[in-house]
């Protein structure tokens, strides 16, 4: 008995010791960069020599920089397209597969999931080819059906929605798999008893599925919002921000400001603004929808 007590009392030291390696990595690569990024953003950062403190100059310059405001707008346009597409398609596929009374559901699920395993360069290169106005098969079949085929990636109005669709093709299979697990956790009796009460599939969806799936949908929503607002790979490969700056999103603007213009202070300011937006949105969602229970 005393031995157990002793072990319990000695847990603090072991506990901290065991946590330490992870804690160090986490502080170094997740937490400190936020503070350090803010620090850099307050300077005219020069990696080679003196970096004078400039206060909030970088931020003031940003908000009067039309290219930054354009990137901010583009980020939201992309997010508004991509986030619902990824979530709705993911949930729709999960529901379809749950109701599927066909053989080979695993095969169908595999086909819908597989694009998630491609890396972003493959996705971008492949869709550039599919959408190519000259040799792409998508414009070809649109023309074959008798419609004029738009130049998807060279049209300023179409480029961001197009990339959002590509992202949905790439990523919604992942959401589908996660949602399927959530759907399978709903007890079948709930559906059976509501069927006896005469509820159709639509009513069952709104009265059983949706309320019970709410936590996992919101959780997926937050992760999708975060990923959507920080999107870089797709535009970097597919359009490089073009035509002009029509698809230049914040992450790309930040990347270019840092590693093409070497204006690190300004780029850090962009990063901090992006961080603030993402953090505020996700915290607001957690607060409003009370996701604490889901996380804890």
């Amino acid at each position: 008995m005393t031995r157990i007590k002793k072990a319990g009392g000695g847990d603090a030291l072991v506990g901290i010791l065991f946590l330490l390696p992870y804690l160090v990595l986490w502080l170094l690569f997740v937490v400190i960069p936020v503070g350090y990024g803010f620090y850099i953003s307050l300077h005219k950062w020069n990696p080679m020599g003196a970096s004078p403190f400039v206060g909030f100059d970088n931020y003031i310059q940003l908000f009067s920089n039309s290219r930054f405001l354009n990137a901010l707008e583009n980020t939201f346009i992309y997010a508004v397209w991509a986030i619902p597409l990824v979530l709705v398609l993911g949930l729709a596929f999960a529901l379809l597969l749950k109701r599927a009374k066909v053989r080979g559901v695993g095969f169908i699920e595999g086909a819908l999931f597989f694009p998630y395993l491609l890396n972003v360069s493959v996705v971008g290169i492949l869709w550039n080819f599919l959408l190519d106005p000259n040799v792409g098969i998508i414009p070809y079949y649109i023309r074959a059906a008798g419609f004029p085929a738009p130049d998807f990636l060279n049209n300023p109005a179409l480029v961001l929605p197009t990339i959002a669709f590509v992202s949905a093709w790439w990523l919604c299979g992942y959401r589908m798999v996660v949602f399927r697990a959530g759907l399978n956790a709903i007890p079948e009796e709930l559906y059976e008893s509501s069927s006896l009460d005469g509820a159709g599939p639509v009513r069952q969806f709104f009265s059983i599925t949706l309320p019970l799936m709410k936590p996992s949908i919101l959780f997926a929503a937050i992760l999708t919002i975060v990923a959507g607002l920080c999107m870089l790979g797709q535009v970097l490969i597919m359009t490089n921000g073009g035509p002009g700056t029509s698809s230049e999103v914040l992450a790309l603007f930040m990347y270019r400001t840092a590693f093409e213009s070497f204006n690190f202070g300004q780029a850090a300011a962009v990063g901090f603004v992006l961080f603030a937006i993402v953090f505020l949105i996700s915290m607001a969602l957690v607060r409003v929808f009370g996701l604490k229970s889901e996380l804890g």
Partner: peptide, 24 residues
Amino acid sequence: AIFAMFLTAMFIPWEINSIPLFFI
């Protein structure tokens, strides 16, 4: 308390810290 901190930090997309991370 420490776990709650980790939870909150989950919403920090670490890639957007790429500039400070680069110097670190």
